[in-house]
Design a binder for these strands. Structure first.
Lengths: 229, 229
DNA sequence: TCAAAAGTGTTAAGTTTACACCCATGA
DNA sequence: TCATGGGTGTAAACTTAACACTTTTGA
């Protein structure tokens, strides 16, 4: 305990970890990326994307580091969910974990990494049993994600740069768990200056082709702040 | 490092603290309770209500423990704000802190403790310089409190059991930082079944006397969930 | 008698919801 | 020619916002 202020010395030190709920959207459903634990205890159990924080490393940087490693994506949208600190939450040792959620476009995920980390995507509504309190962390992350998505434009991080209004509608339906009226939805989106129609159509989901749109982050930051959906 | 799982052993351990933003409401203004640090480093600086987490103690229990000690209140309304984990946030050692905010009725605060802990109430809008990143923690806590207060009935924790509609209106005005229309406000409150008029009046703030109301938690949980204000 | 806070309704504006048909195209 | 998804407008219901005067009472 050399070098610590004398009052600090009376207290124990804990391992600090980060665990991230990586969310992706695919054909009308939200998915979370889980990976098998590669070490004991609970080796082989399904877990969120986590790691221990290193000395000298900011906690949020640790989350970015491990997310880059597991997904191949370096600058993803990430928000803190909170700390989980029950004394018995990890059966191996006293570990306080800081949870994050990340929103990615599933197309950006490097599938080649899924073998290396025994990772897979599962529907958020029916996850397998997860290690420790990761089920509770997942639930809290989804709650926070829904709340953030209603108050800001964070949901666009789940879509490709270019998307159709049908894509966007399905996304909000998946996030808020209810169906939306097509006309009302399109009307509302049409009023938002930062969702811009492109001069392109997408023909992969219909014969007629659907107009492609893009989310203009600059315009959003300037005029932004709609409530969704 | 005896007794830790072998994979864990490679990682450092950090001090874990809790820091709470204790909020109170008095005559139209929101206040935060701050105390002078009693140990080095930064001994004597103003700080939030914090302490280190003990071995075997849940993080949230540590927050409750220290809040009871400093305010004299045992079951107060408390919500987690998040973890603050920058490597250099505490100049004494690597300390990850988990921040909470607590809402109390200022009348319940045991003023006799303020001497013992060199604590005082300051307006949330003009806090003195606070140690480390406590200013940032305060700002994040206030943001979260406002957001929670809009979506749930948490704000009632800032009022005494019995209050007038003028008290309640001033409270929401302080929380949301804008004036509310008296008639629209009273109309809205009148529709909420869980804000019940009592057969009593308060004569401390007017000669005529204002009807006292109470927040019925049971009814709220049954019918609840209004948006405020 | 007046200052100070309590209490009370109506209307206009804006927002949200419900709802049904035609279009373009490839198979 | 038909099945599939793309695209469009209007009216009713509801919510929010704006606004001014009377009441009670102690000083």
């Amino acid at each position: 305990m050399m070098g610590y202020p004398s009052h600090y010395k009376k207290y124990p030190r804990f391992f600090v970890a980060v665990d991230s709920v990586v969310l992706g959207f695919d054909r009308g459903e939200l998915y979370v990326l889980i990976a098998r634990r590669s070490y004991s205890p609970e080796k082989g159990s399904w877990a969120l994307i986590g790691e221990f924080v290193r000395g000298g490393e900011n906690v949020s940087d640790a989350a970015h580091r491990i997310l880059k490693e597991i997904t191949g994506i370096s600058d993803l949208f990430m928000r803190q969910v909170g700390a989980f600190g029950d004394a018995d939450r990890d059966s191996g040792a006293r570990v306080v974990t800081v949870a994050y959620y990340a929103l990615i476009n599933r197309k950006d995920y490097d599938e080649s990494l899924s073998g290396k980390y025994s990772a897979r995507w599962v529907r958020i509504s029916e996850p397998p049993p997860l290690v420790f309190d990761h089920g509770k962390i997942l639930a809290a992350a989804v709650r926070k994600m829904r709340c953030d998505a209603a108050a800001s434009a964070s949901a666009f991080n789940l879509l490709p740069k270019e998307f159709t209004l049908a894509n966007l509608k399905k996304l909000f339906e998946a996030i808020f768990g209810r169906t939306l009226d097509k006309r009302n939805f399109r009307k509302k989106i049409a009023e938002l200056p930062y969702i811009r129609a492109l001069d392109k159509k997408d023909y992969t989901e219909s014969k007629r082709g659907a107009m492609l749109y893009t989310f203009d982050k600059k315009l959003y930051e300037k005029y932004g702040k709609a409530k969704f959906p």
